[in-house]
Amino acid sequence: MKKVTLVDIFTHPIAQKYLKRSGMAHAIETAYYAYDLALKERVCPDLATKAALLHDIGHYEWFTNGKWDYEKYRKNDIHAIKGAERAHKLLIRLGEDPEKAKQIALAILLHTDSYLPEGNLNQNPLQRVVKMADEMDEEPEGQHHYKQIDQDVALQKIKQLDHKVQPFRKLLKKSV
Rank of each mutant, 00 (worst) to 15 (best):
K174A: 02
L19I: 12
A154E: 04
N76Q: 15
N76L: 14
K17D: 11
H12Y: 01
V176W: 13
P117T: 12
A15E: 13
R74K: 15
D137A: 14
L19K: 04
K3Y: 08
Y146H: 15
Q156C: 04
F63E: 14
H145N: 12
L161V: 09
A133M: 12
P117H: 06
P45N: 12
K100H: 11
P45W: 02
T112R: 02
E85M: 04
G83C: 15
A84Q: 01
H26S: 08
D162H: 00
D113G: 10
E139W: 03
Y32K: 11
K17Q: 12
K170Q: 14
D56I: 10
K82E: 07
E71N: 06
K157T: 06
H55V: 14
K75E: 11
K67L: 03
H55M: 10
I28M: 03
S114K: 04
D137G: 10
D113Y: 06
E135I: 02
Q156A: 13
Q166M: 11
P125Q: 14
K174L: 05
D36T: 11
Q148I: 03
Q16C: 13
K67D: 15
G119T: 02
L39I: 15
A51P: 03
K159A: 03
A84P: 11
S22W: 10
A38L: 04
G58L: 10
L121I: 02
Q103F: 08
T112S: 09
K2N: 02
W68G: 00
P167E: 07
W68E: 06
G142V: 09
F10E: 03
